[in-house]
Amino acid sequence: MFSKVFKILHHPQINTPYSLEDILKTDAKVDFLVIEGALSRSEKILSRFGYSFKDILDILSKKAKYIICAGSCASFGGIFRLQNEAKIFGALFSGKEKGGFWFNNSKVINISGCPMHPRWFVETLLKLHYGDKLSLDEYRRPKEVYSYLVHHGCLRNEYFEWKVDCKDYGEKEGCLFYEHGCQGPMTHANCNKILWNSVSSKTRVGSACFGCTEFDFPRLALYETKKHMSLPSAPYGISKRAYYSLAGVAKGFKIERLEKRLIDENN
């Protein structure tokens, strides 16, 4: 479907019909400019094929109808922003703060994630192509993707409900939210709805969600749950009062079934 609808004019790695120079020199307009990677105005930090990246972007952004930031680096600065937070940023945001390469640019759509899921990208482009309604959240991310939380569809949900911690890595049982840094309940993405590579996800193979679609990715101490007085943060949009009362109550019960192996072959 993608290849029938879209024509890739240039891609730096893939065998495509036009070179970057061709695109820079032409007067023709393009529908989409796709940006990967964190941005900088400094020529020393970022240049491409002998041009400063700032110049490339200035030229290309004017030709494009939409600017798609593919991934968390292009959206927020991501990992590489940490090298120089003053000079490296995303297209519209520097971490959480508004103001990246541009302060305002209504053409920009962020598809954050490290990596971004290919379906998020393709579906967004298709919507724009067909003129279907595309609502964006406060970080200019498509709501259809980023209104979900990674927690939705996680196979370990029942362990979260009953506050049963994962005892060790490499087991099917237990929730990774309490001790192992899982950010699933506060990370916006539909990973566990559409799955990765159509078959799995981080939490399905017993690793934590590291919040890679959020502006603060990567947090410090990714494999630890940040707690205050041993209390984890509440899930996204749920008040501490609601969460702690429920959690405190649930923790008070010992649910025998959830303490056992999921597949108990000896019984």
Partner: peptide
């Protein structure tokens, strides 16, 4: 990559390795 993601959760950037083994079961 599907064959692999069954164990690694995803490609790229699966986080399936942990000290002492792998996270998947």
């Amino acid at each position: 990559l599907k064959a692999m993601s069954i164990f690694t959760g995803q490609w790229p950037h699966g986080s399936f390795c942990m000290v002492g083994g792998v996270t998947c079961d």
